[in-house]
Amino acid sequence: MAQRTTEIVTGLFIIAGLAALVFLALQVSGLSPKSDTDTYTLYANFNDVGGIAPRGKVAMAGVTVGSVRSVTLDRETLQARVELAIDAEVDNIPADSAAVIRTSGLLGEQYIDISIGGDMESLQPGDRFYSTQSAMNLERLITNFASGK
């Protein structure tokens, strides 16, 4: 009987450990059980991506709607070409929307914000954002301000 109790308590222990791991995965790292098939791809070219890196956040009106898949250099335009994975549910982004790089808080991480346009047509998978706004470079801003430009 003692062996049985031990087995049950040990079983609970292991389940608690797995539950803790699931907690760390879902609640702490925000891993969502959704798979990659639920997203579609959009592209955006920036003059300066700043701190944007793969798996960075893509938000619309403050709500996360996707993530950055890759950041590469476009050889033709010499701009940074960012591949975005957007949730399939969000399939009605107006075609004239802009991709803007913003910073959460003063020192927070940079993310891509989709600034909504007014077009009736929506962006289709594989489309490129027509207008983008690059990362605000605080250092450059201060330099410009100081030199009076």
Partner: peptide, 19 residues
Amino acid sequence: FWGNMQASVSFTEDVLNGV
């Protein structure tokens, strides 16, 4: 609290490396 946490903690890089 949770939002910042989820935005910055990566499952593979942080949680799995910790494990």
